[in-house]
């Protein structure tokens, strides 16, 4: 569950600002956010993930008030409960597929890389059809395969909230449907909440709710 109240955010050294008076996403919802480029969709995802901290207001994710959490606590919440999928995949080229999937365990002190985690990584890779590529470097994968690796990484800790920033933006039609099927299947199995930013209106019918971002105030400091 996500609950936002009177959220205000602005970047330093920029006149970009975001105002969200009131917004809620219920548990298990499949929400797509649409809106023009630069309107703050990715910024809102980063705020929900605890990567950015609002200037004022409240963000509650799974009963955790992010604003009152320390930086370390937000990181721990993120790595345990929130899965992130990016448009550019954001994989580390010097790691192979398996190491990329397991990266959250290696880079966060909140997780422990044990046998069960490895087995889960292999199982996820099996489910998305890249089991035979676990030892390959990611530069040798297709775009669709890379996004599947990124999804496996996001799902490694069985997150209750999945935040996807244009996950199909760089994919062809076939891979696009494949990735959405994977996300649908995961959400269906775990009742996790899915929030996806997209520009692709063809995929909106795959979501329960569509949020037009223009309802939130985005503009200059003066407007705030």
């Amino acid at each position: 569950m996500i609950r936002i109240r009177d959220l205000q955010f602005r970047y330093e050294h920029s006149d970009f600002s975001l105002l969200v008076p009131r917004w809620e996403v219920s548990p298990g919802a499949r929400l797509a956010m649409i809106g023009p480029s630069g309107c703050g969709k990715t910024t809102l995802l980063s705020l929900i993930a605890g990567i950015l901290v609002p200037g004022s207001g409240s963000i509650v994710v799974d009963d955790h008030e992010l604003v009152s959490l320390s930086d370390a606590a937000r990181r721990h919440l993120r790595v345990r409960s929130i899965g992130l999928v990016f448009q550019e995949f954001e994989l580390l080229e010097h790691l192979n597929v398996l190491d990329n999937i397991l990266l959250p365990c290696r880079i966060s002190g909140a997780l422990r890389l044990d046998r069960s985690m490895r087995q889960r990584a292999e199982r996820l890779a099996d489910q998305v059809g890249i089991r035979d590529k676990l030892r390959r470097y990611v530069r040798r994968l297709s775009q669709g395969e890379r996004q599947r690796v990124a999804i496996c990484r996001a799902l490694l800790t069985t997150p209750r909230l999945l935040l996807c920033d244009e996950p199909t933006g760089n994919l062809d039609t076939k891979n696009k449907q494949h990735v959405l099927d994977i996300l649908d299947e995961y959400v269906g199995q775990t009742q996790a909440t899915l929030v996806t930013v997209t520009h692709d209106h063809e995929i909106l019918d795959r979501f329960d709710q569509v949020l037009d971002f223009s309802q939130f105030h985005v503009g200059s400091d003066e407007a705030l």
């Binding site: 990181r75 990016f86 954001e90 959250p104 966060s108 002190g109 997780l111």
Partner: peptide
């Protein structure tokens, strides 16, 4: 990226 996915 490492920071975003929860890296200390």
């Amino acid at each position: 990226t490492m920071r975003k996915i929860g890296g200390d």
